[in-house]
Design a protein around this nucleic acid. Structure first.
Lengths: 341, 341
DNA sequence: ATGAAAGCGCTAACAT
DNA sequence: ATGTTAGCGCTTTCAT
């Protein structure tokens, strides 16, 4: 503030400026231990006037404590993970912990690298999307010796703890609801992402439940890249040209579902009478569409919140040990695109 | 890998396991200095088998170098900043620098806190959205003595460098295009966010250009919260009930513009004949809508890329000094909702 | 090509 | 209530 330092300021600078030992300055700045109000103010004043910003690197090394929580997610380009982040932030902001985000692009090697980088900062906890990781990644997570919460999915084994929904079950339940409403010529449109294990599990659950009712997917197609809304529009047209007698389309996410819905409405097709539609996610973004798409909420914010609570509890010596496995249960919203009795 | 350590591993552990001094282990792990191939391999093997992850905290303290770049942005809940992040990541991934994201929720106090936290980790550079910051925040940025790039906006003074577009000009140019096409009863629908200075500047540029043509905004309204698409729908209905003779609506972002468009199409209103529409941002997300909304690309990814390039160059002693001020120039896409000759 | 010593800027633990 | 000492786990620098 007073001058432009060429060298970053240290505790020592504040100590000298205030005439108080480094240790006491440190105490004041961290609100730790007893410090008289007088010294306290002198120190604060000096720190403020110098524009001192503590060096957390040194602090972390000395205290062996880092108030960072690593969050490893596959993508930021749909609303799913930002919503999860919101839940995480809401909870962590009540503690002294801070989230640090890393993005993997659904790439296992990138995930490994991101994880390695994060762990090398010795965070207090780790939140990571999915249950599928390379052996090396899993080994790192174990060796880190910190609380690890794997999120989004509970269909599998976790390293330490997990919070999520069963995507297999989600797929199954949607299939059951569709069958129950009398649909039988069912198509599927999804993303071509071999590494999106949750989408895969939903699809598996979906086909499995159909099979149990003696129904097979009548047609299906997978896309990659491009605007989801546009892809939904295009693919819906294509699949119906190829298989005109479909009476239902299940989409792997709400965005392509919305694209399909808009196209069908333009064609004057009766939804959900002539053809029914459902997506997945419960994207608030789409609330303003002409019809509400049938969907299933993935509990994104709750997942983030719960995961952060687990990390926070495990970092708090006084807190009771939290549950290690938390399964949330999404429910179907029928919206306007899935018949109901 | 071999056993589950209760204490994090250190260089010393690798040193002992490989029978090589800590210093040499450090050299191997960082690919620095001359190390014989033989020792090199012994060290790598030991490190791998132990599952050693270096402690960057100690490394950073000793070397006085942190390969982190702080990125401070207001929000993750629309696609704008994720797009910026993509550009930043693309460039930084070619260097040894890593982005660390902080979110301010358009709140100056939060921004100050996030900034303080980040700077306390002594990052190698800082990218921060906007030119408007509290005095304290600005002082911290200056005192940090690191490259700082303020992004998104160039209408103002920067601390150190800036990359963005002129939102005032963007608003002006949209107004001029609208006038040129003969529209004259113009309404505005926007977000109520006093801290979104860029939206404010666009609005100011817009009204200013209208004024120059002797036109005043015929009606306007601001909203906050909720689904943008839905708000666009509702507000469009409201503004037209209140002011039925509007022949154009300018929206502060594409999402509410899309909501408005959908509603107008449902009403059977002729777009862009009876009423023209324009938004702002160029959201790819919306490509699949029945009509393409007129808009202006905010150059989000390029802004991220350019900002990261500046940081990277300034961290590279061999690189030439980059330009400190970069103004990108968005252009209008007329889409299907703004008449053209 | 390898090692030894010093110290980065803090905080824990122990005085006083 | 305040100060002193000894590291935290690395890297820099200087030997060898």
């Amino acid at each position: 503030m007073t001058n432009t330092p060429t060298r970053p300021l240290t505790l020592r600078d504040v100590s000298e400026a205030s005439g108080v030992s480094e240790m006491t300055v440190s105490r004041v700045l961290r609100n730790r231990g007893d410090v008289s109000e007088a010294t306290r103010e002198r120190v604060l004043k000096a720190a403020r006037e110098l524009g001192y910003v503590p060096n957390k690197i040194a602090g972390a090394l000395a205290s062996q404590r880092v108030n960072l929580v690593g969050v490893v997610i596959p993508s930021l380009s749909n609303m799913v993970f930002p919503n999860v982040m919101t839940g995480i932030s809401e909870v962590l902001s009540q503690t002294d912990l801070q989230p640090v985000v890393g993005v993997t692009d659904y790439n296992p090697e990138t995930e490994e690298r991101v994880l390695y980088e994060m762990l090398s900062w010795r965070p207090s906890g780790m939140i990571i999307a999915g249950l599928e990781h390379s052996d090396a990644a899993r080994a790192m997570l174990v060796a880190a010796g910190i609380p690890v919460v794997e999120i989004m999915d509970v269909d599998g084994k976790c390293v330490d703890s997990m919070v999520g929904i069963s995507h297999r079950r989600a797929g199954r339940e949607m299939a059951q609801a569709i069958i129950k409403q009398g649909y039988s010529r069912i198509g599927f449109l999804g993303t071509k992402m071999p590494m999106d294990h949750r989408a895969r599990k939903r699809f598996e659950g979906f086909t499995e439940a159909l099979a149990k009712a003696g129904i097979e997917i009548a047609d299906q197609e997978f896309y990659s890249g491009g605007s989801a809304l546009l892809k939904g529009r295009e693919m819906t047209q294509e699949i119906l040209e190829r298989t005109p007698d479909l009476d239902f389309i299940y989409y792997s996410n709400d965005m392509i579902g919305a694209g399909g819905m808009l196209w069908l409405l333009e064609q004057g097709i009766d939804i959900p009478g002539q053809i029914g539609l459902a997506g997945f996610n419960g994207v608030e973004l789409l609330d303003g569409l002409p019809r509400r798409l049938a969907t299933m909420d993935a509990c994104r914010k709750d997942i983030g919140r719960k995961a952060a609570e687990i990390i926070a509890a495990r970092n708090d010596a006084n807190a009771p040990d939290p549950e290690r496995i938390v399964e949330l249960t999404p429910k179907i919203s029928f919206g306007d695109t899935l018949k109901r009795y």
